[in-house]
Design a protein around this nucleic acid. Structure first.
Length: 257
DNA sequence: ATGGTCGGTAACCGA
């Protein structure tokens, strides 16, 4: 079973690339972020034709998440009780016996800004939600765009990014608190190439120079950690014309969908 | 080379 995550930076623009990627990689589940499309305009038909069920939680212009799955999705949550927010950043659902939670964590803009505080508050609240979800279902996968590079090795220039947004100590501590919920970073369960990243700025030919950060993650509960077989970044879509600034990541689990 | 590029939307904001 393959579970993937991809910040597409506008599903309208990236739909052909997403459909192509579904055909090539055949993930059982794909979590999308930054769809930037209201639910009424979500291209559900295209995904149905491709063999996927879809759940969307979108809005105009900003944010927006969705879950695609080859098998049915149930028990959808978009608004945890303690996270009242007009920004559409969460969609959770059950696939078989696995609880999948797709997150688009706020970017935070700049350390010390109002948006930065919103990000930290949001992470605090999501932590409570994840704890309650974990207690309901031991087979838990939490994935998405976390907008946090957990360690220096996840950053192409750690000194240049020291205490900058995506890398600050408070953000890294917030990420660690998620791991403290007995969740593991699936990517770090395996040997990985140095310079593995999931996001590269559009500017300054950052991708060509591999000036990236690893800010998209797949976190797994202990029950799922026992079954994870590999976790990779697929940089092929980032090489294409008009790419998202993020690459997809995926993990394979030793079970059928 | 201390800037640079996207997407959404309609002058700039967010990333």
């Amino acid at each position: 079973m393959k579970i993937a995550s991809w910040n597409v930076n506008s599903l309208r623009v990236r739909l052909p690339q997403v459909l192509a990627w579904l055909e090539i990689q055949r993930p059982d589940v794909l979590a999308l972020q930054e769809t930037k499309v209201p639910d009424a305009e979500f291209p559900a038909g295209a995904f149905t034709s491709a063999g996927y069920h879809a759940l969307c939680n979108g809005q105009k212009t900003y944010n927006g998440v969705a879950l695609l799955s080859r098998s049915a999705l149930s028990d959808c949550v978009t608004d945890p009780p303690n996270l009242v927010d007009s920004q559409r950043r969460i969609v959770a659902a059950t696939v078989g016996d696995i609880r999948v939670i797709n997150l688009y964590v706020p970017n935070g803009s700049e350390v010390g800004s109002e948006k930065y505080q919103y990000k930290l508050d949001w992470l605090e609240k999501i932590s409570d939600f994840l704890a309650s979800e974990r207690d309901l279902c031991p087979q838990l996968v939490v994935l998405g765009d976390f907008n946090i590079a957990p360690e220096d090795r996840d950053v192409y220039d750690p000194e240049g990014w020291r205490e900058q947004i995506l890398c600050s100590t408070l953000e890294r501590q917030a990420f660690q608190r998620l791991l403290d919920l007995k969740l593991s970073d699936a990517f770090r369960e395996f040997e990985q190439p140095e310079g593995s990243y999931t996001w590269w700025d559009y500017r300054a030919a950052a991708f060509r120079r591999n000036r990236g950060l690893r800010i998209d993650h797949i976190l797994v509960s202990d029950a799922m950690k026992r079954e994870v077989q590999d976790c990779r970044v697929d940089i092929e879509p980032r090489k294409q014309e008009r790419p998202s600034d993020h690459a997809p990541i995926y993990a394979n689990f030793c079970r059928w969908s």
